[in-house]
Amino acid sequence: MSVVAVRHGAVTYGGRHVLRDVNFEVTTGQVVAILGANGSGKSTLVRTILGLVPLAGGEIDLFGTPRARFRTWARIGYVPQRIGAGSGVPATVGEVVASGRLARRGIFRPARAADRDAVRAALEDVGLLDRINDPVTTLSGGQQQRTLIARALAGRPDLLVLDEPTAGVDAASQEAFAAVLGRFAERGGTILLVAHELGPLEPLIDKAVVVHDGRIAYEGRVPEPAGHHAAPGHDHVHPHAEPERPAICVAPTDRMPAS
């Protein structure tokens, strides 16, 4: 069954085409990675699927329903690139993860035991249950990313959408990530993730979609790494990508000499 379907999708930013005639499909139980360089439009593609960026042309279906009429948002768990702009007011890990229940329980009904259990189970899954009462700001970058995964898992979604989940995350957290996603996929969950570098996630991926210059350049099995990406011991660490501004040429950090 089709979970996400994009047909002739197009996105423009201030008159410039960011995505052109994009067609692809994710079916139930698949783990799909969208790959591409910085500024290729890969993040824009998932943000468009989720309705955060307006579609200039084409159609998107979610779980077989046109996106404009799609209402069962609880079926989707979204994991953004990083925690919301570090607000001034402290919030505990448990409070942030509890936001993930809102899609299921609605905004007027107070939290019940089932909601609290789901929050604890999600934190257990990502290995952060002992931090439930700690302020999120005291967590490391990787732990904050795991908190965001727990928030998405707390809603018991059928589809997880992750935007560069491992960018700038330490190796231990990347392994923890891969394990969490692996368990989600084993339970029959569908995953759509954007990545610049797959790392320990690679064995999970059923299908790779490579976005280049706003178009889908490749669709199929994960391409073999080439060039110095493939070199053993190549320490591939990237800073967080700047929000995509297509008019600006992003320096190809991959091609910089490794120090």
């Binding site: 948002w73 609880a74 409070e95 905004i107 939290a111």
Partner: peptide
């Protein structure tokens, strides 16, 4: 009464949108 929803919106507006709030 709306604390969880208002917290979610103020904490991460895009996530709140994708949650269908």
């Amino acid at each position: 009464a709306l604390r969880p929803a208002l917290f979610a919106v103020c904490n991460d507006e895009e996530y709140a949108k994708v949650s269908g709030l």
